[in-house]
């Protein structure tokens, strides 16, 4: 990124090749929406170019990148709220276009319940789970991204897991009653 900052813009291509999938995965698990996730990845790289002069190189690049990603998602959420637009969900989001729940095998059922449970978490808690569980970030790095203490992130993670456990339990009961 320091080279991009110094004017070697082609190096942003290297960063794109390396990080487009982790970023896409981050947004997809936040939104469960493919088109929105792709738009947000584009937005992150546009912001990297726009604000490249602010990159200091003092911390990890991924921390800076996910901070931008977090802001891009918040802006997107605010914009949608402002325009009172309800996002259209992907057809296959949460298995919408897939077979009925009763026809699924056990693993697919469990996967569906886990996706729905993750989607129902509070935004900050969901973000901690995504960054730690799927993107492999340390709590100290997540603390920097969310602007809170490391201790607060750990508590958030524990409570997110507890909430997830309860939501999974409730959803499993609802589906078994169907």
């Amino acid at each position: 990124m320091m080279k991009v900052k110094d004017g070697d813009l082609d190096k942003l291509g290297l960063l794109f090749e390396r990080y487009n999938r982790p970023l896409y995965s981050f947004f997809y698990k936040k939104t469960f929406h493919t088109d929105v996730s792709e738009d947000l990845v584009q937005s992150v790289f546009e912001r990297m170019l726009k604000y490249r002069s602010t990159y200091s190189g003092s911390g990890a690049f991924t921390t800076w990148m996910f901070s931008i990603a977090r802001n891009a998602h918040i802006d997107h959420y605010r914009q949608n709220k402002k325009h009172n637009e309800k996002e259209e969900l992907d057809e296959d989001r949460m298995g919408g276009a897939s077979p009925e729940f009763g026809e699924m095998d056990e693993r697919t059922k469990r996967k569906k319940i886990l996706e729905q449970a993750l989607d129902q978490l509070d935004e900050d808690k969901k973000e901690v789970v995504i960054l730690s569980r799927y993107e492999g970030l340390k709590y100290a790095e997540i603390a920097e991204i969310q602007g809170v203490t490391e201790s607060a992130v750990k508590v958030r993670f524990f409570r997110a897991m507890k909430d997830l456990k309860n939501i999974v339990h409730t959803l499993s009961e609802e589906y078994s009653d169907e």
Binding site: N20, R21, Y24, S25, Y28, K29, T34, S37, E38, V41, R107, R110, K111, L114, E115, L118, V129, R133, Y134
Partner: peptide, 10 residues
Amino acid sequence: ELEMVSTPEP
């Protein structure tokens, strides 16, 4: 089990 939540290819 959270490993099961996958992401499609962009």
